Simulated scan of single mutants.
Amino acid sequence: MDKRYQLQFTVQEDGQLLRDALAGFGISKRTLTAVKFDGGALYVNGEERNVRHPLNCGDVVTIIFPLEEVSEGLLAEYGELAIVYEDEALLVINKPAYMSTIPSREHPSGSVANYVRGYFGQQGIASTVHIVTRLDRDTSGLMIIAKHRHIHHLLSEQQKSEQLQREYEAIVEGQVEVVKQSIKAPIGRKDTSIIERQVSADGQAAHTDVMVLKHGDKNSHVRLKLYTGRTHQIRVHMAYIGHPLVGDDLYGGCQQALDRQALHCVFVQFPHPLTGEVMTFESQLPIDFIALLNN
């Protein structure tokens, strides 16, 4: 059985060359090069063709992608993945707090990537692990994982064009006085740390919208929308305006009430990379988050 990933498209107009139609289907030049030289194939109506082949309306184009090389350094592990949605292209999961997205020196096992590698093996999915939306180890909530590098590419392009939307809820220290605000402040690595980030004039552009949901005695419950995906973006931006996340000791938050940053991805929405159907997913707040809100 051929385990190579395949996609089919129907041509909608006459006169295109195959390479132009493939570009319209979202196939990048890099992907097309891999198809041509690394063990893939292109078919039109069941006949193998090259990229200069002229097409007619109604022709069926089949793209067979090369086999992916699964990272030998990523250990397959078997544990519970809270799968919210799955189809032939992607997974949406609900990540608990205290689980890393990928292995690290401090946490070499038990990550989302380890479990997805094991799950793919059980399901016979010949793919490496493609994390589309990462979450910090102590952040909980919705994550998107692609089942193939081409799907990862399409979803990454959606992130760049802001078609892929992500919203979070957080509990931050102090009373956030402005009910709605946009934080547009570039983020870069802190010179004295390999982990910590900071707002920096020479950093990468970063944009976060903040809306206050409720004020507590000492904290504020806020909803945040990401327009960019910089490392630690929400944590850095909230600390920058003087309201670090509760539990986020890296950026000035106190851990007396919670031993992790109070941050949860509650909402993702994106057009399905193959069908264009708008996919919307929501996640309930975890127990520790709710308990903190009720205090």
Rank of each mutant, 00 (worst) to 15 (best):
D2Q: 06
K3T: 12
K3L: 12
Q6D: 07
Q6S: 10
Q12G: 11
G15F: 09
L17W: 11
L18A: 03
L22T: 02
I27W: 05
K29W: 11
R30V: 13
V35L: 11
G39I: 06
V44D: 10
V44Y: 07
R52P: 13
L55I: 14
E68K: 05
E69F: 07
S71L: 10
L74H: 05
A76P: 15
G79N: 01
E80F: 15
I83Q: 01
E88H: 10
E88T: 08
L90M: 14
L90Q: 13
I93E: 09
P96M: 09
Y98L: 03
M99P: 11
S100L: 10
T101V: 14
I102T: 07
S104G: 08
P108Q: 10
S109E: 13
S111L: 08
S111Q: 14
V116A: 02
V116Y: 07
G118E: 01
Y119N: 09
V129K: 01
T133Q: 02
T133S: 01
L142I: 12
M143S: 05
A146K: 08
R149Q: 12
H152A: 15
Q158Y: 05
S161A: 15
Q163H: 15
L164K: 09
A170Y: 00
V179T: 06
Q181K: 09
S182Y: 13
I183P: 00
I183D: 01
I187V: 12
G188A: 06
R189C: 04
V199Q: 06
A201M: 07
D202S: 09
H207F: 08
D209T: 05
D209E: 15
H215L: 12
G216Y: 03
G216I: 04
D217L: 14
K218M: 11
K218T: 15
K218E: 10
H221I: 01
H221P: 06
V222D: 01
L224N: 06
L226C: 02
Y227D: 03
R230S: 00
R235A: 02
I241C: 02
L245F: 04
L245Q: 09
G247F: 00
D249F: 08
G252S: 06
C254W: 04
C254V: 09
A257L: 12
Q261R: 02
Q261D: 04
V266T: 15
V268P: 12
V268G: 02
V268F: 12
Q269S: 13
L274T: 11
G276F: 13
G276A: 15
G276E: 05
F281T: 08
F281Q: 02
S283M: 04
F289N: 03
